[in-house]
């Protein structure tokens, strides 16, 4: 098992290295970071409350949306594409191929996350002149929630990638879905200002709670009054995100095995023919 783990990590890092040498992939990451920089720059002097820059509100939302984007959307896109081109079936034809493949895409996604968060925080620190509003405890809280959030969202990347069959539809609709989830989770505007019927959806999703904890770490304690429910609920937030993590970890391996079992060369050939006909 440790051999499969090591092979998977090596595979994931190789994939990521290949990605870094692919102009389109690099451009995608750079483009995202430029947007982050611009948004923070435009709001560099605005204040949410005396002594609390608006950027401290915005940055937690940015990190949470990035987390959602890289884990759920990015991972799903990779899996659905590699299912179509036969990578998944190839994995099936090799000893320990599926575990190695799963570890591989996970490692690749983690590398992508690191290469997204680190520059984002660096850009934020540069734009805000070093003032991120984080003490040591705050930084530890941010890291803990990002790790737990990753564990909670990664399995859903697998689930989405295995449920849908067409890479092009995941690319398009997935983009919209990411936006909708971000909105419903109070990452674009505060949850309290959303229509009443959206609020329960936001509260049920892990994204609101990830954003909640990150805001709590960046913002002064007294600004908890602006939060939904009028205070910081770190314990509840960690519990809800952990619950999502457990559900995902139970569900994802089962689903991945199921679709891999159904994957055959003839099915891939059929899809290839269909894809050729669309062009």
């Amino acid at each position: 098992m440790t051999i499969a783990l090591r092979a998977g990590i090596r595979r994931g890092l190789t994939e990521f290295g290949i990605s870094l040498r692919t102009p389109a992939d690099v451009l995608f990451i750079v483009f995202g970071l430029v947007i982050v920089g611009v948004v923070l720059w435009l709001n560099r002097d605005a204040e949410a409350a005396p002594g609390a820059p608006l950027a401290w509100f915005i940055l937690p939302s940015i990190l949470t949306i990035q987390l959602l984007f890289v884990t759920a959307y990015g991972l799903a896109t990779v899996i659905v594409t590699e299912r179509e081109d036969g990578t998944l079936l190839r994995a099936r034809s090799l000893p320990t191929g599926l575990p190695v493949y799963s570890v591989g895409v996970t490692a690749r996604t983690l590398a992508e996350l690191v290469c997204t968060f680190v520059p984002t925080l660096a850009i934020a620190a540069a734009v805000l002149g070093g003032a991120l509003g984080l003490d040591a405890l705050g930084l530890a809280t941010v890291l803990a929630m990002l790790v737990l959030g990753t564990v909670a969202l990664l399995p859903f990347g697998f689930v989405i990638g295995t449920v849908f069959r067409n890479p092009r539809s995941v690319g398009g609709w997935g983009f919209l879905a990411v936006g909708a989830v971000a909105f419903a989770s109070g990452l674009i505007q505060p949850l309290a200002t959303l229509p009443a019927w959206v609020q329960p959806i936001g509260l049920a999703l892990p994204l609101f709670w990830i954003g909640h904890v990150l805001r709590g770490a960046f913002l002064p304690a007294e600004l908890g009054t602006l939060e939904f429910g009028g205070g910081w609920h770190f314990g509840l937030a960690f519990a809800i995100v952990a619950a999502w993590a457990i559900v995902g970890l139970v569900l994802a391996p089962h689903l991945l095995r199921r679709i891999a079992r159904r994957e055959t060369a003839s099915a891939i050939e059929l899809r290839r023919q269909a894809a050729l006909q669309r062009i």
Binding site: T22, D85, G86, T87, L89, A265
Partner: peptide, 9 residues
């Protein structure tokens, strides 16, 4: 198998 297209990169 027939017609692999995987690992193109």
């Amino acid at each position: 198998l027939q017609s692999w297209r995987d690992h193109a990169r």
